[in-house]
Structure formats: structure tokens, C-alpha cells
Nucleic acid binder design. Structure first.
Lengths: 215, 215, 215, 215
DNA sequence: TATGAATGAGGGTTCATTCAT
DNA sequence: CATGAATGAACCCTCATTCAT
């Protein structure tokens, strides 16, 4: 049983870049700051990453790898209920934002708006992160398929949930007030309640009668 | 009848800055680019604006002034129905995004994520822009108050609508595919439909005797 | 009667760059050295020159402008004899090389070998400098047309003279010994002597007989 | 009978450095490029060469070793005539330049102008290369001693020939046009013709009775 | 010998801003 | 008000070189 290896230069650089891009944004973060914070020097950084853009790509790949272990996994531990998972997930983002003084917000969302137009590789990874996020939520919703109306498009719904998370975080962060996010989550909850009510009615209608039942 | 005055230096600078901040972001836009695009020179710019931050503030004030004339007004011209206005507004954003090749997105949202943490004055104006936007939508919703459930918090709902707009634009822009935004709007529409159904039921339950109500 | 204006920043930069490129070569000269030697700072340099290559172009244009006033003019002052001018010119280069401890050599020749392949604009100017040099010498030779054989191609001869200058300077500079240049000039002189002897014989042959004479 | 050994690391490095210094010049060639092109790594390079200057010295020594086998030898195979050898040699340089698109030129000449001032050891080797070149040509000329005037300094003449080669290559390479070199060679040829004519006259004057001389 | 990570000074260039005219 | 030269810190990146494995 030994102590864990100290993080490699590459990992220290990646972690510092990840944190600083999150805190300050991509353009506002200088390479020299990343070097200082990671106790690396420029040659080492450029040994591992071709340029600042490649470092951004590395950070986004890191987020991709982290999505399930750090974000989705804990939620899945907390409950098996697909719908509750959605609101626990949103609550986790909410709490994370509030607990850090409304700095930072969603790192992928921040980068999406700052760099997507000009950095093709980064854009691809941002898109993939969004897709993975939504796909994970979509799977949760499928597990609650029968508690939601037949006609509800669950893939679109998972996108909608991501929309609510990103839009809510943006406003709350800017206002340094969690209210806009809470309000958005509350309306999403109301929507789900209505959907579940509707689904229950559908089930009653279907289940109380024989197939092909009318009126 | 005379030709309109050519735009003043100040206006040309402000317009160039507005466009470039929108296209490229705040940090990625250099003062020299603004000067080139506005055919001004640095002395003139710094005569009107103390520094780059003040220019950002000028841009945000410009957006504040423009909100109703350019964004809300046209929607209000299109229909008097408060709920339909919401969806026309979202459709306008949607169409604007798609028609510009998925570049740009919402200028306030972009700046919110890029500069809110570090520029107090800009943050205040971003918050005010969000508030004005939501207040305007809130007023529309109030005009449809009786078609929505009593318990629905319309102020929160207006925040939720802004959330959907910002979150949907972010995803659609990154993906260069309008689908995530359309899916989000579709779910918002489904939510409104359920709310209106519920409100109708409430009205029926309450007495069925509202003016003009028959059946 | 006033003191002459102090040299402008642009001129100081250009002069420092010219001198340093000559002394050290293009690649071995850092922008920071040019700035130090010209007491300018980087912003000023890049205000006048787009990049280091543009500065090189500026230097080469400067040489183009200087060719006659500084190089050819003084020789023309010294004698009206076209052939003697050639050897005074070569002697001036020779003396310049020896008097500066065999550093430097011909600035155009140095740059020709160092940057011609990779800098199109610089290459053009180098070629033009060579052409101007040869054209000037060519004009001198034309003024001595009748002292050289009919069949001698004077344009080619002017190129040959440039060849002797550049090739001689190269060897003398490397050896830090003027001998290779002196030896080359001596052989060029011998060549001219033979040509003039031949031309004299031609004149005698032609002059002693009627045109169309056939032996 | 076995396959030849693959070139050693040292040889691969030396060959890559030689080629790159020739193509791009010394300062414009980075160690990392040499490593990439030779599939070596930095530790290996610095195991064999103390530093970049030592590598340059190695390259120049290589050229020294190669001078006769690769440059002079083939010419000597082509003809036994000392004077013709001179022009075959120049023609070979000429053809080499033109066949490689006017890149590269004489590697020693290039380095002479770029590094001679600042690298003492390299300078010595450059000088020695020039000396060896001229000495070889000098020997050729001695073999034609009786076809040239008594008074002609053949050592100086060999320097003059090197001058013509270097000066002609410089201009042709810069212009990407072989003409300046051809013109220079043509004049050197004319000079030799006149010298040979003069030598013939000297021989006649001296007695007309040299062995084998008839008519 | 070979490997490739680490070093940190220096490369060329852009930045926001100031100021004399 | 307008002009554009001047300022110098900071930008991203490459350099030749060293060293632990």
C-alpha cells in the first residue's frame, strides 16, 4: 500500500487549464497563468499540447470522460426513479452554483458561447458533451416511460431539460441570485407533474377498459 | 427634406463594438478591430469611452434602449394574444439564429457568460436586460392571466421562458442545428397547452358561469 | 538655420534593422535587439511594419534607394572612365570589407543566401537590387563600348562583375584575409586588359581598311 | 553477402542536419526539425554533439571529406584536360542548381555568409573547404600550365574560379534564373580563351620549337 | 545508447491605453 | 473633436539544452 503517484505534469496542466477556463473563460485565461497555477513551464505545456486550442480540446475531452463518474453517477446512486433523477441533477447544478458564489456556472455552456464559432474541434466536443448529457437523461426518462404520456418525445425532453439547466444557470449566475434557476426548475417540475397526471389518465383510460374501448 | 446625418464617430464606434462583441465575444475583439471597422482612431474612441469596459457598458445600454423597439415591439404588432406573443418571440430568435448560419446567438446571453464575473457595471446591465425582457413577457402573460391556472407564478414563468430561449439558443448554436431549440420550444408549447387545459378546467369547476361561457 | 530634425522612430528602427541584419544576418537578429538599438518599443515597430518580414522588405527598399547616392554616385564622381569606374567600385567594396575587420560584406549578398528561398517579397527586392547594380555598371561599360571587343556582351559582363564582387567578398570575409578578393579583382583586371588589347586590334583592322573589308 | 547496416543514429542526425542547413540555413533550422527528420531524439543528438555549433562543425567536416569523392572526382573522371575540368565543374554546379529549382546553392557559400563571423570553428572549416576546393582546381590548372601565360598566377586563378562559381550561384539562385551564372561562366570561358591565345603567342615568340610542336 | 519529459530564456507579435499635435 | 505615433506589459509559442530513467 503506497501513496498515490503525484499527478503528472500533463495532468496538472490539464487540471489548471480546466479550472481557469471555467473560472475566467478561455480568452481571459493566459498560458502564463496556467503555467503558474500548475507549476509547469511553457516548454512542458507545449510538449503535451500543440497550442492553446489543443489544450482546450484536452479539457473538453476531460469533461467528456468525467461526465458520468462525476455528474451522472452520483445522481444515479441517489435514486432509481428516472424522473426524480432529473430533479436531483438540476438541484446539484443549482447547489454547485450557489455554493461557489455564483461564479463559474456550467463549464461546457460557458465554452459553447465563447469558442464554438471559431474552434471546430472544440465545437465538436462541446456538441458531444451536450449529446452525452442529454442521452444519459434520455435513458433515465425511458425508465419512467409509462409514467409519461405516450406522445411525449423523450429525446426532445432530455434536450429541453438541458435547456432549462443552461438557461437557468446563465441567469442565476449573472444575477448572483439563484431565484431564476429555482423558478425555472419549479416550472419544469410543474410541467412534469402535468405530464404525469396526463399519463395516469391515459393509463386509466386504457387499463379500465378493453383494448379498442371507446368513450 | 435633407439627407440624414451620417452617423457620428461615437455611433459608428458603438455599432462596430456591438457587432464585433456579438460575433466574436468581448475578449476576442480587439480595440484595433473596432477602430478599423468603424473607421475611427484610438484617440477618438478614448475620447468617448474611458476604456474597453466602458465601451461594453455603452453597448449594453444600447441593447437596453433597443429591447422594446427592436425585439418586443414587432412581436406586439404581430398579435394581441399574450401567449401567442411568447411563441412568436421565440420563433423570431430561432429564425434569426438559423438565418445567420448559427453564429452569434443572443448577444446578452453570450456576454453574460463571458464577462459577468469580472465586470460589475456590465453585469448590472446584463441583469437589467434580462429583467426587462422578462418583465415585458410577464406583462404579456398577465394579459392572458385568465387562460392560465390561478396558481401559476407568471413572473417565474417569464423567467422560465427566458431560460428556454437562452438554453435553446446555446445548444442550437453549438450544434449548428436548430433542432435542440425547436425541441425546447415544442416542450414549452406542450407545457402551455397543459396549463391552458388546466385553467379551463379550473374555470369550469369554479362555476361555469363566466361571462359568455356557455356549452 | 536650425538643427536637422532628429530621425523619426521609423527611420531609427529601419537603420538599426539594416545595420543588425548586415552585421548578424536576418534570423540571428532579434526584434528585441532592434528595439534596444533604436530606442523604440515593440508597439512602435509594429505600427510601422506588419512583421519582421515587412521590416526586411523596408530595409531592402532602403538599400534600393541608397544604391546610387551611396554606392554608384561617389564612383562616378571619381572618374568619367567607364572601365576605371568598375575597378574603383570593386576597390571601394574591398576597402570597406577590410576596414571593418572583414565583418559584414555585401548586405544584399548576405540576405540573398539567407532569405531568398523563403521570403518572396524580399527575394524580389534582392533581385531588383542586383539588377540595378548591374544596370548601372552596364551603363558605364557602354560608355567604353569602343574600347571593348564588338562581340563582348556588356550586359553579361556587368553580371560577371557583380559575380566577381560577391564571390570575392564571400571568400575574403570568411578567410578574414583580403587576398582572395584582391586575386579575383586582379584577374578581372587582366581580363579587361586582354579585351582592350583585342578591341584595339579590331579597331586597327577595321580602321586600316574600308567597311566590308575581307582579309 | 548481407544487407548494408542501417545508418547509425549519428549518421542519420548528421545527414538530416546537413540537408536542412543547406535547404534552410543554420539559424532557420531548429534542433527539433533535425530530430524529427532523422527520427532521433534530443538525448541522442546531444550524446553525439555537444551543441548545435558542434553539429555544424560535424556537417562541415563531412563536406570536407566529401569534396573529392563527390565533387572533384567525378570531374576528373570526365576528362584529363585541366582547363576543361574547370568548366565541367562549373557546369555541374550550374546543373545542380537548376535541377533543384534554384533552391540550396552552394552549401559552404551559404554558411560562409551566415555563420562565419560568430562561429570560429565553423569559420575555420569553411575556409579550409574553400582552400581545398581552390587547391584542387589549382592542381588542374598546373597540369595545363603550358597552355596559359607564364605570368598567370594559377593559385590566384583558382580563387578567381571559386569566386565565379559562388558569385554566379548567388545571383542565379536569387533570380531563380540560371542566366547570371551562365553569363558569368561564359565570360570566364572568354577569359580563358584569351589567355590560351596569349600563351600560344608566347610559345611561338619563345621559339616555336617546343617538343611536338610543328607548323 | 536511447528515450522523451523538463527547463526557462527568448522568439515574434498584439494588447489596451496615452498623449502631443 | 480628430489624428495616429508612442508606450510597454502581456500575449502565445519555440528555442537550445539538460536530465532522470
Amino acid at each position: 500500500m503506497t501513496a498515490p503517484d503525484p499527478p503528472s505534469s500533463r495532468d496538472r496542466i490539464l487540471e489548471a487549464a480546466r479550472r481557469l477556463f471555467h473560472e475566467q473563460g478561455f480568452h481571459a485565461t493566459g498560458i502564463s497563468t496556467i503555467l503558474r497555477e500548475s507549476s509547469a513551464n511553457s516548454g512542458t505545456l507545449y510538449h503535451y499540447f500543440d497550442n492553446k486550442d489543443a489544450l482546450l480540446v484536452g479539457v473538453l475531452e476531460y469533461y467528456t470522460r468525467l461526465l458520468h463518474p462525476a455528474v451522472m453517477g452520483p445522481v444515479e446512486q441517489a435514486t432509481g426513479d428516472g424522473i426524480e433523477r432529473v430533479f436531483i441533477l438540476l438541484q446539484n447544478y443549482r447547489d454547485g452554483l450557489a455554493s461557489l458564489d455564483f461564479r463559474m456556472g456550467c463549464p461546457i455552456g460557458n465554452l459553447a458561447l465563447e469558442v464554438a464559432d471559431d474552434h471546430a474541434a472544440a465545437r465538436d466536443l462541446i456538441v458531444r458533451n451536450f449529446e452525452n448529457w442529454a442521452a444519459n437523461v434520455h435513458a433515465w426518462l425511458e425508465s419512467a416511460r409509462d409514467r409519461l404520456p405516450f406522445s411525449t418525445d423523450l429525446a426532445a425532453m432530455s434536450r429541453f431539460i438541458l435547456t432549462v439547466m443552461e438557461g437557468g444557470m446563465m441567469q442565476a449566475r449573472a444575477a448572483r441570485d439563484i431565484a431564476p434557476m429555482d423558478q425555472s426548475i419549479a416550472h419544469l417540475r410543474a410541467y412534469f407533474d402535468l405530464l404525469q397526471t396526463q399519463a395516469a389518465a391515459e393509463r386509466t383510460a386504457r387499463g379500465g377498459n378493453s383494448p379498442g374501448d371507446r368513450s
